[in-house]
Amino acid sequence: MKLLVYSAKKFEIPFIRKANDDRHSITYTKDALDSETAFQALGYKAISIFSGDDASGIVLEKLWDFGVRFIVIRSTGFNNIHIKPAYALGLKVANAPNYSSHAIAEHAVGLLLALNRKLILADRQVHQYNFLLDDLMGQNLYGKTVGIIGTGNIGAVMVKIMNGFGCKILACDLEPNINLVELSNVTYASLEAVCRKSDIITLHIPLSYENHQLINKKRLGWMKKNTILINTSRGAIVEHKALLQALEEKRIGAYGADVYEKEKGIFFKDNSGIGIKDGQLKKLLSFPNVLLTPHQAFVTEEALENIAQITIQNLNEFEEGKTCKNELGYETLIL
């Protein structure tokens, strides 16, 4: 099958080539999918997209007219694709779930440790030959209460890691994981209780209509003034206008994230020469207690290998007319 891979990054192409093993005819483009680049799919029966690509209804209609019948997503989240119009058109769509829960959870822990122990500031000072300790005080994680919002595959790994640090764990999820309660001393509580009682809060939920700006002004107001908030899920789960206000008024301790609500056109490209126009993002980056990484949590060898294998396997199953276990059907509608 002819496959066009949108938003192809140099570091992931070798993994895709290895997983493909010359079965499919694959073309790579660094361009993201949108209404203007959809024409590149002309002559391809399948495309692969990433989390920042635009697969809205208008784009999907163009793809269908160009002959595209299959879309394989190289991510677990699929909030960027409008499943309902895809379903109506007859497009078959599959994602890449559970490619590496450890990669994402470990990155969340990295953000937490870097913020708590002021590692970025310490590194900057030492490189300037400043070895003072005055501004580098952190806290022990041992004994702290960690609130984990979402205890699916990634959240469950986060629970186990933080339990290993000796933390008390509160969790919030629509479907509590009994194994975590028994094995990792997790206590499930309401969202309000998690926000009010936690010293650290980490987000591990998908972006959906219900979860959009879940962490808003009201819920930020519930948090302790020294709370460290970590987000490796999706940027739009946090209301950034309210977040900026909370940071400015010092109503939370710190914010660490691998995602941003308006990544399109900014993330996955080098803007160092031209700068950025997003005033909100500029302001976010101006706070010393904010650590933002460029949506890199998935960039581990193991995760990239798994993503590539799952993506090609999805395509194989579509081509062979088999039931694709990762196909997103009507019941998975988000938008």
Rank of each mutant, 00 (worst) to 15 (best):
P97V: 03
N98G: 08
Y99H: 02
S101F: 14
S101K: 14
H102G: 03
H102N: 09
A103C: 11
A103F: 06
A103L: 11
I104E: 00
I104R: 03
E106T: 12
E106D: 10
E106G: 07
E106A: 12
H107P: 07
H107W: 00
H107C: 05
H107S: 01
V109A: 06
V109T: 10
V109I: 10
G110N: 06
G110V: 03
G110T: 02
G110A: 04
G110K: 07
G110D: 04
L111A: 01
L111P: 03
L111C: 02
L113C: 05
L113Q: 05
L113M: 08
L115Y: 08
L115T: 06
R117E: 01
R117K: 15
R117T: 04
R117V: 03
R117Y: 05
K118N: 02
L119F: 05
L119P: 04
L119E: 00
L121R: 09
L121Y: 06
R124I: 07
Q125Y: 08
Q125I: 05
Q125G: 08
V126I: 14
V126D: 01
V126W: 04
V126H: 06
H127K: 15
Q128R: 15
Q128E: 12
Y129C: 14
Y129P: 07
N130G: 08
N130S: 12
F131M: 13
L132A: 15
L132R: 15
L132S: 15
L133N: 11
L133Y: 12
L133T: 13
D134I: 13
D134A: 13
L136G: 06
L136S: 05
M137A: 10
M137L: 12
M137Q: 09
M137I: 11
G138H: 03
G138F: 02
G138T: 02
Q139H: 10
Q139F: 09
Q139E: 08
N140M: 09
N140V: 04
N140L: 09
L141V: 08
L141P: 09
L141R: 07
Y142R: 15
Y142L: 13
G143H: 09
G143M: 10
